[in-house]
């Protein structure tokens, strides 16, 4: 145990480890905030679909040899978020079918592109790291850290400013509309924020595991608390703790960062589930 602590202390000397912790905590915080809304609005599958779209975006960026793939991936993901939301309201194509189409299509298309055009010698390694998170979290530059900090501040600020509106449109859309709240605009805002968060979180856990980062803390918190505010705060706290623990464990044990964080999230969920069961008996 002591050994692990001294090892962590040693690693802390390195800026890249500190960067990884900062970025990891911020991403975990942002992704947990909207988790409650996503789960309750039955939007969680949109997160899943978007992460596959982001994967497709990364594939295109790598084929085009873009140095900063964020510039391409972010707009593509935002556009798809808006499109998915539109079709979700349209009764002609069922929302979930549209999401399945776009997400599986993007996944296949992305892999195809990477396969045909990739000049890399380690193709399956590239694909794997895009899907499951790469070590790129450990190779962040100061600039990337600042970008992440800035985006996180914006996301948290928007969430706080629109906290009450987000509650209104999540709890009862019909009532919100009748009270003059612009439900469509806020749904759009929620979709755009999700897109930003997903692109941010790609670096941390990879596109396959993002949904876990968004959904697990919310589900855990919903076992324990009963008001919207306490569930939101609790899920943010749980998510940050899981991310910290996950990153530290992965450093000490040498496990992949993304899947370790998600594993911790799952463990936390089970602990919360057990606590709620014990409380009810």
């Amino acid at each position: 145990m002591l050994d692990a602590f001294s090892k962590i202390g040693m690693y802390m000397q390195y800026p890249f480890v500190r960067y990884a912790l900062i970025v990891g905590v911020l991403i975990a915080l942002c992704s947990s905030l909207l988790g409650v809304t996503l789960v309750l609005k039955r939007f969680s599958f949109i997160g899943d679909g978007l992460s596959h779209v982001a994967f497709g975006g990364v594939a295109i960026a790598s084929v085009l040899n873009l140095t900063d793939n964020m510039l391409l991936v972010l707009p593509i993901t935002i556009v798809c978020a808006v499109l998915l939301l539109r079709t979700g309201q349209n009764t002609k194509i069922k929302g979930d079918a549209a999401i399945a189409m776009i997400s599986v299509g993007a996944l296949a298309f992305g892999y195809l592109l990477m396969n045909i055009f990739s000049t890399s010698s380690n193709l399956s390694g590239d694909v794997c790291s895009t899907l499951f998170g790469s070590t790129s979290i450990l190779t962040l530059t100061a600039g990337e850290v600042w970008l992440c900090v800035a985006l996180s501040v914006v996301v948290v600020a928007i969430f706080i400013i629109f906290y009450n509106k987000i509650f209104d449109v999540t709890f009862d859309e019909a009532f919100a509309k009748s009270a003059g709240t612009r439900v469509d605009a806020y749904n759009l805002l929620i979709a755009v924020i999700i897109a930003v968060i997903i692109v941010l979180a790609m670096n941390l856990v990879g596109s396959l595991l993002i949904s876990a980062l968004v959904i697990f803390p919310a589900l855990s918190a919903m076992r324990l608390f009963k008001s919207f505010r306490s569930v939101t705060i609790c899920s943010a706290v749980l998510s940050v703790i899981s991310a910290l623990l996950g990153i530290l464990i992965s450093i000490v044990a040498g496990t992949p960062v993304g899947s370790t964080i998600v594993a911790v999230d799952v463990a936390v969920f089970f602990i919360c589930w057990v606590i709620s069961k014990i409380r009810h008996t």
């Binding site: 509650f167 709890f171 709240t181 919207f228």
Partner: peptide, 13 residues
């Protein structure tokens, strides 16, 4: 998960 207070207050939106 919403408390009675949160719901009633949302009537003032």
């Amino acid at each position: 998960p919403a408390s009675v207070w949160e719901i009633v207050l949302s009537g003032c939106q």
